[in-house]
Design a binder for these strands. Structure first.
Lengths: 148, 148
DNA sequence: TTTATTACTTGCATTATGCAAGTTAAATTT
DNA sequence: AAATTTAACTTGCATAATGCAAGTAATAAA
C-alpha cells in the first residue's frame, strides 16, 4: 500500500478525528466539491466558488490538500502561468462523504441544486461510479473540464 | 415535513455548504461521534472526549447543535444538576456521513479503532440500522447509555 | 452544614479567517 | 520589443474563532 502516512501529531487515533483534522473547516470540502462536481482545476476557477473564498485562504487550503495527498498540482503544458489541480485517488474517494453530506442537508434543510440531489438519490452507486470515471461534472454543469 | 428551516444567511444554497456551515469545524462531528458511538449524554462525559475539547468550546458547540436541531437537551429527572443531551432524528441521520468519513480515513491513513472500522466495513447497512436502533454504542464500548 | 459535582461563564492569549493591495512570471496585445 | 493582461500567488492588517485557566451557581452527597 503506497500512501498511508503515520501522521505525527494527531489529537487521537480515531479515524473520524483524522478526517476532521484534514477536512473539518469551512472551505476544504467546498474546493473538493468544485473539483469533483464542477470540473474546476485552476486557482482562478476556484476563486469563482459560489461562497466567495478569500485568496489567501484558498492558497493555504490548496497547499494543505496537496500535503494530505488529496489533490496534486501539475504545470499546464499549454500555458506556463497555469497550474492544474487534480484530485488524487484519495480525493476521488471522498465522493461518498460528499454525497452523504449533500443528502443529509438536502433532507433536513432548505437547499438548492435539486438536480444534483435527485441524481444522488435516484442511484447513489451509479452517481459514485460516474464521479470515479470523471463524468459527474460534465453531467451536472457547464463543465469545461477536459481529461487530464 | 416539520423541521426544515429556511435559514437566513447561508453563503450559498448548496446543500454541501449547508452541511459544512453546520458541521465544518474541529469539534461538532466528534461530539456527535461520542453520542452516537460511545453513548455519551452529559457535559461531563463530553469533556472526556479523547481529543480534549475546551470547556467553553464544548458549551458553544452544544448550543449550536441544539439550535440546528441536531441534538436536544432535557433535564435528568434523577439528578437536577444534570442535563441529558440526545441526538434528534436529524442527528441520527448523520450516521452515514460519519461512517463514510471513518471509512475514508481508515482507508487512507494510519488510524486506530479497527474494531469500529471492521464493523462498518463488514456490513455497512447493518451497522447503520444498529445506530438507528441505538445499540451501536453498547456494541462498541463500555456504553453506559440507557434508553431515553 | 460543609464539601463535591455538574454545567457552565469569564478573561485573556493565541491562532485562524477575511479583506485589500501588492508581487512575479508568463502570455497577449499593440 | 514594449506595454498591458493574466494567473497564481504573498503580505499586512483587522476581526473572529479557539484554547487555557480560573471562577460561579445550583443541586446533591457526606
Amino acid at each position: 500500500m503506497a500512501g498511508k502516512k503515520p501522521s505525527p501529531e494527531r489529537r487521537s487515533e480515531c479515524p473520524l478525528n483524522a478526517s476532521v483534522e484534514m477536512l473539518g473547516d469551512r472551505w476544504s470540502l467546498l474546493i473538493i466539491r468544485d473539483m469533483m462536481l464542477r470540473g474546476f482545476r485552476t486557482y482562478k476557477e476556484f476563486m469563482e466558488c459560489y461562497e466567495g473564498i478569500a485568496t489567501n485562504i484558498l492558497a493555504d487550503r490548496l497547499r494543505k490538500l496537496v500535503a494530505y495527498g488529496i489533490i496534486r498540482a501539475e504545470a499546464d503544458p499549454a500555458d506556463g502561468r497555469k497550474l492544474i489541480y487534480l484530485l488524487t485517488k484519495k480525493g476521488i474517494d471522498l465522493a461518498p462523504v460528499l454525497t452523504e453530506m449533500v443528502l443529509w442537508a438536502a433532507g433536513h434543510e432548505e437547499t438548492g441544486n435539486q438536480a444534483l440531489v435527485r441524481l444522488m438519490r435516484k442511484d447513489k452507486e451509479k452517481f459514485l461510479a460516474g464521479v470515479r470515471e470523471g463524468w459527474a461534472s460534465r453531467q451536472l454543469h457547464r463543465a469545461p473540464a477536459p481529461r487530464g
